[in-house]
């Protein structure tokens, strides 16, 4: 089972990882794993478990191009992020790192702390009471990039970009 971590609208990259906690400023990149939502939600990093699901409102990840924001979420092994709208650069960075992002609004359906099961293959969330919530299936390109483990392995495998 995975825990739902609920966030509001317009979660920006300064909330995900403030600029002061960039790997650039740290002794080692590994430290970054301690800092997702370090100020916006201090209980997140110490308690998040591999596979946990972030459910957020609209415009998730707006702001900076800092890839270390999604990288911090990858380091704590977030299973997926579900939001009705993702900011463009964040979505691209998350895709490049192989973090599944689903465009759907589950903020009214799920609640913070809820235990769910995430089925990436079937694009489905199962709640404890047996409810099945369908997630919009990603395009074949997104799936291929996730399957490859990110855009770099994708490029190395196929020797091209999508649409090329």
């Amino acid at each position: 089972m995975a825990r739902v971590w609920m966030f509001g609208n317009d979660v920006n990259t300064d909330q995900i990882v403030p600029g002061r906690y960039a790997p650039y400023m740290l002794k080692s990149e590994a430290e970054l794993a301690n800092y997702p939502f370090v100020e916006a939600r201090p209980d997140f990093a110490p308690n998040v478990q591999p596979g946990d699901v972030l459910v957020a409102g609209s415009n998730f990840g707006c702001g900076s191009s800092r890839e270390y924001a999604p990288l911090a979420l990858k380091m704590v092994q977030v299973g997926a992020i579900i939001a009705p709208l993702f900011a463009r650069i964040f979505f691209r960075n998350a895709l490049n790192l192989g973090i599944p992002c689903f465009t759907a609004d589950l903020t009214k359906t799920l609640h913070d702390g809820q235990q769910v099961e995430l089925d990436l293959e079937r694009c489905m969330i199962m709640t404890e009471d047996g409810t099945h919530l369908e997630l919009p299936p990603p395009s074949s390109f997104l799936r291929e990039v996730w399957a490859a483990g990110g855009i770099v392995p994708y490029y190395r495998t196929y020797g091209r970009f999508p649409g090329e």
């Binding site: 191009s65 999604p70 691209r92 770099v152």
Partner: peptide, 27 residues
């Protein structure tokens, strides 16, 4: 393309400027 979200700045001269992250810029 710039490793900074405010790379949209280059639109001031009519260039298509866009921000990207580490991996995209490396590619």
């Amino acid at each position: 393309t710039g490793s900074d979200s405010h790379s949209t700045a280059y639109g001031c001269v009519g260039a298509f400027g866009t921000g990207m992250g580490t991996t995209d810029i490396a590619l």
